[in-house]
Nucleic acid binder design. Structure first.
Lengths: 193, 193
DNA sequence: GTCATTTCTTAACTTAAGTGAACGAATTAT
DNA sequence: ATAATTCGTTCACTTAAGTTAAGAAATGAC
């Protein structure tokens, strides 16, 4: 499990054995059962997650309806908005599958940055990369129709199609479950003809 | 002009006079004429922008059609995707108004980070904040209808409604200009009745 | 294993966005 | 100043998504 984390970090900076041990001593690995809610609307959590195995989902409840806006899977980082602005969360985060992840918080970050400033570099680069990726995703979403978004998802994250319930995929695509069903039927029809 | 930049920076870190002078010696301020294209599709620019005054627009040309996906105005930072991944740009960036901005590049960043490591902290925090804000924006977009998005924009960025042409706003909202016209007429009608 | 709940699909109907075209208004070029 | 282009709106028509409802399939609880 540690290897996955250290392999990931090694893409950005190189760690000494001492630094690795310092990280391990923080006892950050957690195994979470499917269905567990990590963050509820209104809560003020400080937890930042890095997923080693599994899948977690971010969703709002608007007018009593769940609106799923993101999925996070292997090697992805999730820092909830409430950690950044120290305000109550507007959304929920729950585990779609049994999940192994690491949990950190800004206090730990500062401690690590002070001991080894190169972590600050890593976090800056990661944040910049994630921002750039997020912007491309948003652009693709804006410039395409629900059908194109679905086809794009099939290309880019085929695993999600398998591991995530349709109605959650639908709101992730910005449409209703019935529309996703219909749209899939339409695509099947085209493929045949 | 410098004051705007240093005021902005002071929200994150405090600078010595030496550091301020080091920045000024880099000669980063530019005045750009309305209509100037800062980045073209296919180009590999290294320029990162911070806007002091004015407005710039990011757009794709897809099937010969302009698709505007973002506007950047006063005190906003734009690091094009091509700077991050060093690949040809997929989009254009142009000035909607006469604009004053600063231009930097990763080489300058590294130089500044080496001299004054606290800039690395600033950039990490800024990137994290922008990422969090971007995620909230994306969530709002996904969970609302074109009409709600428009009303939301009127609330949150009323200046854009004034300074940006309707057809560019339309694609920013993910719809066609005709639909934006109709949608506005519909809202006017509701307000009356 | 059975029952209850959730999930997925289909269908009929409503609502809103896309499309193509037209026309006046505003802007830009010369 | 005038001509040419671009921009914004409206309209009629098409297409696709939202809504409501119903039923089958899958999943989870006991």
């Amino acid at each position: 499990m540690q290897d996955i984390l250290f392999n990931f970090i090694s893409k950005y900076i190189s760690l000494t054995e001492d630094e690795k041990n310092a990280i391990l001593s923080l006892d950050i690995f957690r195994t979470i059962k499917k269905g567990t809610i990590l963050l509820k609307e209104g809560q003020k959590s400080q937890d930042e997650y890095f997923i080693l195995k599994g899948c977690i989902r971010k969703y709002y409840i608007i007018d009593g309806e769940e609106k799923t806006t993101a999925f996070f899977t292997e090697l992805e980082v999730l820092t909830p908005h409430c950690v950044i602005n120290n305000a109550p969360s507007e959304y929920f985060i729950s585990c779609l599958e049994d999940t192994i992840l690491t949990v950190a918080n800004p206090g730990m970050d500062v401690e690590i940055f002070t001991k080894s400033p190169k972590f600050e570099l890593m976090c800056r680069i990661m944040a910049e990369e994630m921002l750039a990726k997020q912007q491309i995703n948003f652009d693709e979403f804006k410039t395409s129709s629900p059908e194109q978004r679905y086809l794009n998802l099939v290309q880019k994250r085929p695993d999600l199609i398998q591991r995530v319930p349709q109605h959650q995929l639908a709101s992730f695509l910005g449409i209703k479950p019935q529309s996703l069903s219909r749209l899939r039927a339409r695509i099947m029809e085209k493929d045949k003809g």
